[in-house]
């Protein structure tokens, strides 16, 4: 019996849905940023700065950051629970996996806070 305690949505169905909703947000954001850079090539600082000074672009970026954090957590959880287990690593498998999850959790929070700092220029 596998108990879901470390995955984001606490259930596979929620994880499944969150992974797709966040994927859509991240895809739209990628198209938006890449499209902007390509259509304003060669990009200068004023144009770029002006883009990110707009409130809705900051909100869109924040949405992408939060989506990224959730998407990465679910994805990395899937990878870790598949490959870092007692089956592959022996009796210490669970401990190693939990340690990695803590490390990745810290990195994910750091990414999110870093991104917010960039956007709001703290």
């Amino acid at each position: 019996m596998v108990t879901a305690v470390t995955n984001l949505g606490r259930s596979g169905v929620y994880d499944w849905l969150i992974q797709r909703v966040t994927a859509v947000v991240l895809t739209l954001y990628t198209f938006f940023i890449v499209g902007f850079i390509l259509s304003n090539s060669p990009l200068d600082y004023a144009t770029w700065e002006e883009l990110f000074s707009q409130f809705w672009v900051r909100i869109f970026s924040l949405l992408a950051l939060v989506s990224l954090a959730a998407h990465a957590w679910i994805g990395l959880w899937v990878v870790l629970t598949d490959y870092v287990t007692t089956l592959t690593m022996g009796s210490k498998g669970t401990a190693i996996r939990l340690f990695l999850q803590v490390v990745l959790g810290v990195v994910t929070v750091a990414y999110t806070v870093w991104g917010i700092e960039i956007l709001w220029g703290l």
């Binding site: 600082y45 770029w48 990224l68 994805g75 990395l76 899937v78 990878v79 990414y111 220029g121």
Partner: peptide, 29 residues
């Protein structure tokens, strides 16, 4: 999966570029 894991590390590069590009005109150039 592998590309996702790689991309997770690459986010640091992308955030670093975003920071450098937005901080000031000097850091942009």
């Amino acid at each position: 999966r592998a590309s996702g894991v790689l991309l997770y590390a690459g986010i640091a590069v992308l955030l670093w570029m975003l920071q450098a590009s937005l901080q000031s005109e000097a850091s942009f150039s």
